[in-house]
Amino acid sequence: MSRVPSPPPPAEMSSGPVAESWCYTQIKVVKFSYMWTINNFSFCREEMGEVIKSSTFSSGANDKLKWCLRVNPKGLDEESKDYLSLYLLLVSCPKSEVRAKFKFSILNAKGEETKAMESQRAYRFVQGKDWGFKKFIRRDFLLDEANGLLPDDKLTLFCEVSVVQDSVNISGQNTMNMVKVPECRLADELGGLWENSRFTDCCLCVAGQEFQAHKAILAARSPVFSAMFEHEMEESKKNRVEINDVEPEVFKEMMCFIYTGKAPNLDKMADDLLAAADKYALERLKVMCEDALCSNLSVENAAEILILADLHSADQLKTQAVDFINYHASDVLETSGWKSMVVSHPHLVAEAYRSLASAQCPFLGPPRKRLKQS
C-alpha cells in the first residue's frame, strides 16, 4: 500500500486566492494483479454453464480479502454459449462490502496482453458476489490457432484489481511565511564533478583513453575500487588504474551511474553493462540491467540471455529466462542460440529441462510459493 502523499503547497495549487485553511483528501486504492494459466484448455468440458475456478489470491499475505477468477468455457447461458465468460469473485471478506475495479486480458504466445476488457467503474462486491463479462471473447476466435491465444493449448488470463480503501483527510492552515525547501541536487552536482573533471585525484585508463576521477567517490560506490585504493596496490601508489576489459562507451555509462545513480543509455548496452556491474560489484546497476534484459526477452535471444545471466550470477534474470524458455519451449528449441547452448553450456540445458519437467508435473513435489530491489 502506498504512503499517503503530503498535500501540495497551496501557493502551487492555483494562481488564484489562497485560503486560510485547507483539506486534502486521499482515497486510498490498493492495486494488484494475478495470472492464471489453464493447461490443455481444449479438453475443458463443453457443457453450457460449466465452471472452472482459479485458486484464491489477494494483494498480499496480510490481506484478508480473498478473490478468485471464474471461467465458463462455453458461456454462462444460452445467450453467451458462443463466448467464454469471465468473472472476478470475492471469496471471503471481513467487511460487509468492498468496491473494486478490474481489468481482464489474455496473454498471447509472446506474453503480450490482448483482448483487454475492464470495468468502467468500481463495482460493489459482497462475499460470494462476482462481476465480469458474460461475453468476454468469442470461442471461435479464441480457438483459432492463427490468433495465437492458446500457445501449446494453454489459456493464460491476466487480471488487474484495484480495491478502494478508506479515504484519509489531511488538513492544515496557511501561513504568510511559507518556506520552500529546494530539491536535493546531489546527483546532478556529483555528475558535474565527473563531467568537468574537477578536483580529480586519479586516472582511469580504458582502451587508450584516459578519464579523470575521484578516488573517494569510486571507493564509496564500488567495493572493488575501494579494495584497489585501500591496500598497497599499484593503483593506490600511482593513482592510476588500467581497465582492459570494458569498452570506453560502456565504461562511461558505468561511471555515470557511479556518480549519479542513473544510467540513461542502459537499454542500448544492458548486456555489456551487466558484465561491468558484476565485475565492479555495483549491485543496483546489475539489477537494473537484469530488468532491462528481462523486458527484451524473446524467442530468438532467450538462450543467449540465459548464458549471460549464468555467467554473471544474475539470479533474477536467470529465473526469468528459464521461465520464458519453459513457456515458449517449442519455439526456443528451434533457435540457433539454443542449439549452440546445447554444445557450449549443457548444464544450462539440463537446468531448463528440470524446470520444465517440474512445471508440467506438479505432483512430483509440493507447490512452490512464489514470493528486491534495493
Rank of each mutant, 00 (worst) to 15 (best):
L218A: 00
C205N: 15
S59Y: 12
V224G: 09
D315G: 09
F251P: 00
Y353C: 06
V332C: 13
A227V: 14
K31R: 03
E12H: 08
S171V: 04
A314N: 06
E230Y: 15
N72K: 04
F32I: 13
K215F: 12
W194T: 06
P17E: 14
P346Q: 11
V91G: 12
A100C: 15
A303P: 06
L84H: 06
K215E: 12
L155Q: 14
P17R: 08
M254I: 06
G111E: 08
S313Y: 10
D82C: 13
R45N: 12
G365D: 15
K262Q: 02
L218R: 00
V343E: 07
A122M: 14
S162E: 15
A270D: 06
Q209D: 14
S96W: 15
E334I: 09
A276D: 03
Q165D: 06
D166E: 14
S6C: 05
E300M: 05
G60V: 10
C44L: 05
K53C: 02
R99L: 10
L190K: 10
S162P: 08
N40L: 05
S295P: 06
I307V: 06
P8H: 13
M233R: 14
Q360W: 12
F363R: 15
Y259C: 06
S295Q: 11
E195Q: 02
G16E: 11
Y34I: 14
K339I: 11
Q320E: 11
V241D: 05
E145C: 11
P94R: 12
A109M: 08
A359D: 12
M254W: 10
R354H: 05
V30N: 12
W36L: 06
A292L: 12
N169Y: 03
L371S: 15
E79W: 15
G60C: 05
A321L: 07
A321G: 03
D152Y: 08
I38R: 13
F41K: 13
V71D: 05
V322F: 10
N62H: 05
N72M: 06
S374W: 09
R368C: 15
L149W: 10
F363I: 15
E145W: 13
N62D: 06
A220S: 12
P7Q: 08
V30T: 03
E230P: 15
P264G: 02
K103M: 12
E47P: 09
L356W: 09
F199M: 15
S33W: 15
T335R: 09
E232C: 10
L293H: 11
D331K: 11
V349D: 00
W131C: 07
L86K: 01
V349S: 11
M13K: 06
P346T: 08
C159K: 00
R121D: 09
L293Q: 08
N265C: 02
L204V: 15
Q165N: 11
S222Q: 00
